[in-house]
Write a protein that binds this DNA or RNA. Structure first.
Length: 300
DNA sequence: ATCCAGGCTCCTG
DNA sequence: CAGGAGCATGGA
């Protein structure tokens, strides 16, 4: 059953990106993986807003590096500010990056990346469940494959709607995945282990034991402890979720293969750095580990 | 073919 | 408690 979307109101306005933010740098990441829940085409980013945000469809048309023309199609009960808040959560627009750039522009490891990728921000997952799912799917496999699995999951368990002659998806809610058959997930080439992790995490969220709101109120150590208590969520996944969803500035996925390879390359090492060596290297970045990681991921 | 990807759990010794 | 097997698949 495909829902046909209807909206009675249209609002348009211009969103100016904060300092140290450039659309082309956001797009580098947004465009990196084919995501099912949004589309970038013809100079427009379009998506069906998540249920928690409200019943609306958003079009983002960049007119310069810093000005985004927004069109929101919605029903009366939804305010445009909710759509703006969603973008802010997605692209981490509220963090003041001035101290970061000032402190690390001459950092031997970060400096070149800050220059080359100036204007980037952590492009995250506002939805905690989505962040957890992609974190689990991304463990120990290549990123392209992980995103393909995510698409299959969205196709099978997400919500579908049609709007202006096209099909649109919303990422599945935990309740749907909690009831899924492991065998069905296996058919999608999700491993037995990961299928079990997904059901466990989905169940915890569906039963209200785990939520973004409650995590956001906890101090950093407790966020990590709560997440790693879940089966399938180890240190890397917890750090990843803290970084991409909870906006924890000190999140640092030291076990990350991409991060290790970036440091190996920058320091001309003949092997990847160990986790301990990475923590040592990261000491000057205290309080900014998440952004340090992000810029190293972006590359020089 | 072999090694490695945005790792984690569980089982050894 | 450190160390390692096993997991599943795809790309280089």
């Amino acid at each position: 059953m495909v829902m046909s979307l209807t909206f009675s109101h249209t609002d348009t306005w211009v969103l100016t990106l904060p300092p140290h933010t450039r659309w082309s740098q956001l797009l580098r990441w947004i465009d990196r993986h084919e995501a099912m829940v949004y589309r970038w085409a013809d100079g427009k980013l379009r998506l069906w807003l998540p249920r928690e945000v409200g019943e609306g469809f958003l079009e983002v048309t960049p007119t310069s590096e810093t000005d985004l023309h927004l069109s929101l199609f919605h029903r009366g009960e939804m305010a445009p500010s909710q759509a703006a808040f969603f973008l802010s959560e997605w692209w981490d627009l509220t963090r003041d990056l001035s101290p970061f750039y000032e402190s690390f522009q001459d950092d031997p490891l970060l400096g070149p990346s800050l220059q080359a990728s100036h204007g980037a921000r952590i492009v995250g997952f506002p939805d905690l469940f989505e962040a957890l799912v992609i974190g689990i799917l991304g463990q120990q496999v290549n990123v392209g494959f992980a995103y393909r699995l995510k698409q299959r999951l969205t196709d099978a368990y997400g919500h579908v709607g049609t709007w202006q002659g096209e099909r649109w998806w919303r990422f599945p809610q935990p309740e749907r995945i909690a009831e899924a058959d492991i065998s069905h997930l296996r058919e999608m080439q999700i491993s037995q282990r990961k299928a079990e992790y997904l059901l466990g995490v989905a169940g915890a969220m569906a039963e209200g034991q785990l939520s973004k709101a409650s995590l956001m109120m906890k101090p950093w150590e407790e966020q990590m402890a709560t997440l790693t208590a879940l089966r399938g969520i180890g240190n890397w996944t917890a750090q990843y979720v803290c970084m991409k969803c909870l906006h924890s500035p000190q999140a640092f996925p030291a076990g990350d293969a991409g991060l290790q390879n970036a440091v190996k390359r920058l320091l001309h090492m003949d092997r990847k750095p160990t986790v301990e060596e990475l923590y040592e290297l990261a000491q000057p970045w205290a309080g900014w580990e998440a952004y340090a990681t992000w810029f190293l991921w972006m590359g020089g």
